[in-house]
Amino acid sequence: MSSHPTSPRPVADLFAADGRLVAIPRRPARREALLAHLAETLFASGRVYREAEVNEALKTVHEDYPALRRYLVVGGFLARTKDGAAYHRQRTAPLPGGATPSVA
């Protein structure tokens, strides 16, 4: 029987002293916690980012920025226009009145 604690470990455990990610977690719940943290700390709500800006922000934490970008989009933390040119942070909680943020 394993002796793993049942409470989740803090996201800070995933980062080295220099602020870079040690690894992208394989476990979905752990990866989801990381993605939520990255979305909140790297991307301002209400701002539209070009793909190059998203890449630069993600490169500050891990060299596999394409994987992080994909996980953020697939996980619903970032929304992307159909042509992939623009991204914006999505709210994880529903907006008041059922409004949905959109990109022009």
Rank of each mutant, 00 (worst) to 15 (best):
A79H: 11
I24W: 01
R9N: 04
R91V: 00
S7W: 06
G84W: 12
A104G: 10
G46S: 09
D64Q: 09
A44Y: 09
A17T: 14
A44S: 12
P94Y: 02
P28G: 03
T41Q: 13
E56F: 07
T92V: 08
L38E: 03
F77S: 02
R26S: 11
A44N: 04
Y49V: 01
A33L: 08
Y71K: 00
S3G: 13
T6C: 02
S7N: 08
K59R: 15
P28M: 02
G76R: 02
A12Y: 06
R50W: 02
P10V: 01
R20Q: 13
R70C: 08
R9G: 11
F15M: 03
N55T: 15
S102N: 05
A29E: 15
R80Y: 01
R47C: 06
T92P: 00
D83Y: 06
D13C: 04
V74G: 01
R69Q: 13
L58Y: 02
A93Q: 13
A85M: 09
A104L: 12
A52R: 11
G98H: 06
T41D: 08
D13T: 12
R26W: 03
L78S: 00
V48W: 10
R80D: 02
L58S: 02
R31A: 09
L38R: 04
V22S: 05
P94T: 07
L58W: 01
F77P: 04
Y87H: 14
E63I: 10
A86F: 14
A44I: 00
H37F: 12
A39Q: 09
R9H: 05
G46N: 08
V48E: 11
Y65S: 12
L42E: 07
Y71V: 05
L38H: 03
D13A: 11
V22C: 03
H37V: 09
L38G: 01
P5W: 10
P8Q: 11
V73D: 08
Q90C: 14
R47N: 02
S7Y: 10
A29C: 02
A29W: 01
M1L: 10
V48Y: 08
D18A: 06
A17H: 11
R69D: 02
H62Y: 15
P28S: 11
E32Y: 11
F43R: 04
A33H: 07
S45V: 00
P66R: 07
F77W: 09
S3F: 08
A52P: 05
H62A: 10
R47G: 03
R27S: 07
L42P: 00
T6Q: 12
P25S: 02
V73N: 11
L95C: 07
V61I: 14
H62M: 05
R31H: 05
G46Y: 07
R9C: 03
S3H: 13
A85T: 14
Y71S: 06
L58A: 04
N55K: 13
A16H: 14
S102D: 12
R91L: 05
T92I: 06
V74A: 11
P10G: 06
A79Q: 13
S45R: 15
A23L: 12
A36R: 14
V103N: 06
H4I: 08
G19Q: 08
E32G: 09
R20D: 01
